[in-house]
């Protein structure tokens, strides 16, 4: 696994501000949480999270559109991701199942929930972070080797 070149912390912070601004606007205009796993589940009809389906669909379609605009006008990302289909499928299944079971992901719990100090979101964020640290540590230092 190649390690990407360091990212300017100010660029990371700026990207984060855009994400937080999106969550802020959605909350103040529509009263909704910008939780992507919930939006995806609603947009596809897998779950009814309360938000009208058309809005969930619009939000989900906006994600690649926004990324495309940045890629076109500012900087095209240098994406490095596994080419193992079984690994992608197992990871996708776990992420899909886990986010529904835990009612949220990095956006809904990690950003929106932590912002309002929701005890559930703080616990969920700590849990998925720890699990992520653990899996990466096992994959890199116990399975693949350093």
């Amino acid at each position: 696994m190649t390690t990407p070149a360091p990212l300017d912390p100010l660029v990371a912070l700026g990207g984060g501000l855009l994400i937080g601004l999106a969550a802020a606007v959605l909350l103040l205009f529509s009263g909704r949480i910008a939780g992507i796993s919930g939006m995806v589940a609603r947009a596809t009809g897998i779950a009814d999270t309360g938000i009208p389906r058309q809005q969930a669909l619009a939000f989900v379609l906006g994600l690649p559109l926004g990324a495309l605009i940045v890629g076109f006008w500012i900087r095209s990302p240098d994406i490095a991701v596994t080419t193992s289909v079984p690994l992608l499928i197992v990871a996708g299944l776990l992420v899909g199942y886990g986010t529904r079971m835990g009612n949220g992901c990095t956006s809904g719990h990690g950003v929106c929930g932590v912002s309002r100090l929701s005890p559930r979101s703080l616990a969920a964020t700590a849990s998925f972070m720890l699990a992520g640290f653990f899996v990466v540590a096992v994959a890199r230092y116990m399975v693949v080797g350093a």
């Binding site: 996708g92 776990l94 992420v95 886990g98 079971m101 998925f128 720890l130 990466v136």
Partner: peptide, 15 residues
Amino acid sequence: LIAGATIFGAGWGLV
């Protein structure tokens, strides 16, 4: 909540 978040985190860490 904890089980779901942990399952999610495991998948997140895989890829």
